[in-house]
């Protein structure tokens, strides 16, 4: 009985999660890094603007009845011929570009985060299996990862996308494109995370607490997910951040090639693609404004990833 109270006392004395976060090195270095602060601010603004699009976008680009073809290819409002109703101009179908970009950013972000979640599930599972069991499982999985990486993840994504699109057909593909893209990019890029997890597991596996857990009779899944996984989280976090940027670029590339989101439900990549057909006629805004949004989004995520890497794993930092 007395022992139980002492554990409870101990737990009460331990600082809560929020207090620990307030004293952490992560927050400390964040407060002293204006670049990271600016990047996070821009990222949050873009994310809120994109996910809140149904509330504040001037028009609904998915609603075909609200579109007038007579409004097509209007320039942004600060140029000659611009209309104040369309701040950033309109695209070739007469959709308001600002609204389309907001909705498109939402699609891009959804696919980016979804694909990374998918990657994390596959990567953590395969990485833990390979690192913990070793032997033939390790050899097979890592060999597969090597092959995929030597093909480059974008190439794998294009090939898988091409095959999936060929087998689904255009119409079917368009209806489930969002889910399919998350799957395709997730499958194409899992090796990055699997390798990181495996490397950390290999380093952790020989430590005493793992031996202790094994001696106590815990089974492999419990050791893998309850004991090893928490100790491999910080490198996963760093890689996952950069992978979000990569996934967004991959999605944009696939959409640009016509293997991604259909034009009725555009992402930033398919917006750039649809605008590219009109760039020779002088309508640069349809392609270059979504392009600029894409670059800013990817840039701030990459810079945040760089900052996280420096803070969380000083050993990885090089030059």
């Amino acid at each position: 009985m007395s022992e139980e109270t002492s554990t409870a006392d101990l737990r009460a004395q331990m600082p809560g999660a929020w207090a620990r976060f307030r004293k952490s090195y992560l927050l400390y270095s964040f407060k002293r890094d204006p670049v990271a602060q600016l990047c996070l601010l821009i990222f949050i603004i873009i994310t809120i603007a994109a996910f809140g699009a149904p509330w504040w976008a001037p028009t609904d680009p998915y609603d075909l009845t609200g579109i007038d073809i007579m409004n097509s290819e209007l320039p942004p409002m600060w140029l000659d011929g611009g209309d104040a109703a369309f701040p950033l101009g309109t695209d070739a179908q007469g959709r308001d570009l600002l609204s389309t970009i907001l909705y498109g950013t939402r699609v891009s972000l959804l696919i980016g985060f979804g694909a990374v979640a998918m990657q994390c599930v596959l990567g953590i599972l395969f990485g833990l299996l390979a690192g913990y069991f070793g032997g033939i499982i390790d050899a097979t999985l890592m060999r597969l990862a090597d092959i995929q990486l030597s093909f480059s993840t974008l190439m794998v994504a294009i090939l898988v996308g091409a095959i999936v699109k060929a087998s689904f057909g255009n119409l079917m593909f368009g209806q489930v494109a969002l889910i399919l893209l998350i799957l395709i990019i997730g499958i194409a890029e899992w090796p990055q995370i699997a390798r990181t997890v495996r490397a950390s597991v290999l380093a952790e596996r020989s430590k005493e607490y793992v031996d202790a857990a094994r001696v106590m009779g815990f089974r492999a899944p419990r050791i893998m997910f309850r004991h090893l996984l928490p100790n491999t989280l910080s490198p996963i976090f760093v890689i996952a951040t950069v992978q979000i940027a990569n996934a967004i670029i991959s999605e944009a590339a696939l959409s640009f090639l016509g293997l991604g989101m259909p034009e009725t439900q555009p992402s930033l990549g398919s917006l750039i693609k649809s605008g590219f057909d009109y760039i020779q006629s002088g309508a640069w805004w349809i392609t270059l404004i979504p392009g600029a949004v894409l670059v800013v989004l990817v840039l701030v995520i990459n810079l945040l990833g760089d900052w996280l890497r420096d803070v969380m794993n000083p050993r990885l930092h090089k030059g």
Partner: peptide, 17 residues
């Protein structure tokens, strides 16, 4: 750093413009 974040097709479009 900026160059890494610009997808290749966008660079191409900007160059064309």
């Amino acid at each position: 750093v900026v160059g890494i974040s610009v997808p290749v097709f966008l660079t191409a479009i900007v160059l064309i413009q």
